[in-house]
Nucleic acid binder design. Structure first.
Lengths: 213, 213
DNA sequence: GTCTATACAGTGATAGAC
DNA sequence: GTCTATCACTGTATAGAC
């Protein structure tokens, strides 16, 4: 019944998809997207190169499998905040998730890999569509966190969409300059300014940030 | 007398360098870094493929010529603000320059191309070094604009380096999400929040933003 | 389903004429 | 200095055995 253009990542078994995503992830971390070859992907797993072409029709599809995996991983981290009841705490944890842990190799590698695919999105419709869907979902999640706080009276009456976009831009920029260039010395300053922004422009008068901020 | 590791872009005559930078720029805009080939670069100019290899030793060097050109272009735009006497005006114009004009194809293309090289910087020392130098110079320029305003008493006593980094992250993130993904609808919101931030957190009490903001 | 071996196109770079 | 022609190699993808 699927009238849609078939999703090339849909019929890959979960086991294989995990193997593929992981090998692509490691190959991307080691060589970057521009330096990525199917041989290098295979070299990152126990499987042969033909294994990857059995499950996917092309190198391009391999990357899409990784991209789906990366999106889900990132969104999973972000959407873990739904468990948190307090909107203030929720917002701060969400921002931490967005910024990522600069000391975690895995997190850093994911951010940089996704950023490289993002930079190539203007030349690749499939990348573009998936990444735009991903960004829009992040924006929606963030906006909803903001709305919660506004409704609860602990946030100012900011524009949730615009504020979400602003916060996301800071995070995306940090992934670029700080993570890709290793400019760790600016990381702390950016974090401070960001949480300062939350305190002075988002939190309502008299509301205090969570412990330790 | 150059004891340094020779700069591969140094001995290229200015005429040739301009031709190279322009062809690489167009090829990058059309195919992206990952899809860049020396044939496609040549196809963007009247010259043959051999022309490029006469002036540069490798494809890699061609891209460095472009990167130098792109850095100078961007820094030129930013540093044009030194002519402006009023620190407030100066800051706002600098931020406009950082965000870039989303309707200008050239500006957009440059931002996206540089961003793709930035994403590849972890895997390419030459890219890394040039781009880090570029980012640090932008940070220094911005910080100096902020210091001017603080000294003149029209800005609050913000931390110039951290604030400069924060502003730059917003701009870099915008180049990514907005320009690379064409999410023009979020652009306006981000701009508004950014200039709001300047007004509420950077400008001193009672100081008003420039006309039209 | 997974492997080894290989076809075949396209790439970066060079040679040699002008 | 710039061109045309070409080479050696690597990259994606497939064939066919198991």
């Amino acid at each position: 019944m699927s009238e849609e253009a078939a999703d090339p990542t849909a019929d890959v078994p979960d086991d294989a998809a995990a193997e593929i995503a992981d090998a692509v992830r490691r190959a991307l971390a080691k060589h970057g997207y521009a330096g990525l070859t199917t041989k290098k992907v295979a070299a990152e797993s126990e499987k042969s190169e033909a294994f990857f072409f059995y499950h996917c029709d092309s190198k391009h599809d391999l990357i899409l499998v990784f991209l789906d995996y990366a999106s889900e991983w990132s969104l999973g981290r972000l959407e873990a905040v739904t468990d948190i009841a307090d909107p203030v705490e929720k917002l701060y944890v969400a921002c931490e998730a967005l910024l990522g842990d600069p000391d975690d190799e895995f997190s850093r590698g994911m951010n940089v890999a996704v950023m490289e695919l993002l930079a190539h999105a203007p030349h690749d419709t499939a990348f573009h569509d998936r990444l735009e869907a991903y960004e829009r979902r992040v924006l929606a999640d963030l906006a909803s966190v903001l709305e919660d706080g506004i409704d609860a009276g602990v946030f100012r009456a900011v524009d949730p969409e615009a504020t979400a976009a602003f916060l996301l831009m800071v995070a995306d920029g940090t992934a670029g300059a700080v993570h890709a260039l290793g400019m760790d010395d600016v990381e702390a300053g950016v974090r401070d300014r960001l949480f300062d922004y939350l305190e002075t422009s988002v939190l309502a008068e008299g509301v205090t940030p969570p412990e330790g901020r």
